[in-house]
Design a protein around this nucleic acid. Structure first.
Lengths: 213, 213
DNA sequence: CGGTAATTCAAACGTCCGTTTAATATTTCT
DNA sequence: AGAAATATTAAACGGACGTTTGAATTACCG
């Protein structure tokens, strides 16, 4: 276990192809030949650099963690100290999460890879947890506690935050169901805005905040 | 396209093994040999009865739809005509959905199969939609409209109902993340109750209903 | 420059995949 | 009972899989 330097060259190309293809098709349904072809590398390069297909999967999870961690730390937002500021920060974070999960820019192959790893309960779920789920949940717990006046460490607070996250995540995971029922063909900016406004209203309601008053 | 009689014997055994294994491991990661072994049938039986592995997958989706439809129609509940009744009916349905998705009884292999098919966007997603997602969403829209006084067919109503569903679904899909963060090893009756109470509180808040008053 | 290590490559490895075959067993019906 | 349809079986098929091999190439460094 060394310090995980940033990969480059063939290594990086293989990891990026793996992130994309594993995310699109799943681990079992993706062949090493397909990955090598997409990366412009030889088939044997996967065994050479990562020891095998499973090793590449882990390397992809590590790269996911690396990029996600840097994405998390570069968007701290201004610190909230009052309940009103905390509520505003919650709105901002939830909106950003929705854009990250549903939008087509930025996230790229990261979100599909994460959801696959989660659904397949693969070896990358640990890194998904540590680099994305836990930090996000923690920040939201702190802000919720500040905005609502409750204990940030209580069971109820942690559950409430999961209901907030779940509302957002489902619009991505259940995308084929949602778009079909809504009569949309994809999530465009307008659709994302509509969803965001609804989630924002839900948050206000859960906080007992009346935006009209 | 005949009338889809209930399968029996080898056919049924293969379908049940397929529902279970496809749900546990995913379609691509499950071999026909494994299915035949689990069903106590010969390998060639899959090709004989269903034309191939893909045919078995479709047959599993049809069986899923059959069981889900019957499960949906046998729990109509008493019809709601007032806002208070509608709110109570919403609480009941959401609680039942949570138990169905998180509990270990009844659902069996159906829920994992459904979630896999959804995650892989497989050919069964259409049947999942028609036999589960659409009927459930429709009922909830009607009840929400009655409970809140809004239009059951409006975009906002349909979105709100998806946020309700998403809160519940995420506790199943994100189970490894949730249990780890909550310090639980699984979802027991106590944990499900806690989650249900929180979702119930959220619903009340979204309806502008004050349970203390 | 020469030598050593690191990397890439075409080719082949053995294994498991989904499917097919052809023979046998079972059921169905006259 | 006997013919016909249906179902099950063991065995083999060609192909794709992940991996390994050993030589060729490239990069690094005294």
């Amino acid at each position: 276990m060394d310090t995980l330097p940033q990969p480059e060259g063939t290594r990086l190309a293989l990891i990026e192809a793996g992130l994309r293809l594993f995310g699109q098709q799943g681990f079992a349904a993706t062949s090493v030949r397909q990955i090598a072809l997409a990366a412009g590398a030889n088939i044997a390069a996967i065994a050479y650099h990562f020891g095998g297909k499973d090793g590449l999967r882990l390397a992809c999870a590590e790269e996911f963690g690396r990029r996600m961690s840097s994405a998390m730390t570069t968007s701290p937002g201004r610190p909230a100290s009052t309940a009103a500021e905390a509520r505003a920060a919650l709105q901002d974070i939830l909106r950003a999460m929705l854009g990250f999960l549903l939008g087509d820019r930025g996230a790229g192959a990261l979100v599909p890879f994460m959801l696959r790893e989660l659904a397949e309960n693969g070896p990358g779920v640990d890194l998904v947890y540590r680099s994305f789920a836990e930090p996000t949940h923690s920040r939201l717990c702190t802000l919720w506690a500040l905005a609502s006046g409750h204990d940030p460490a209580s069971t109820d607070t942690r559950l409430i935050v999961f209901t907030l996250i779940g509302q957002i995540m489902y619009f991505r995971i259940g995308q084929p169901v949602v778009t079909r029922r809504m009569g949309w063909d994809t999530y465009g900016p307008d659709q994302i805005d509509q969803i965001a406004r609804q989630i924002s209203r839900n948050l206000d309601a859960m906080l007992g905040f009346d935006p009209e008053g």
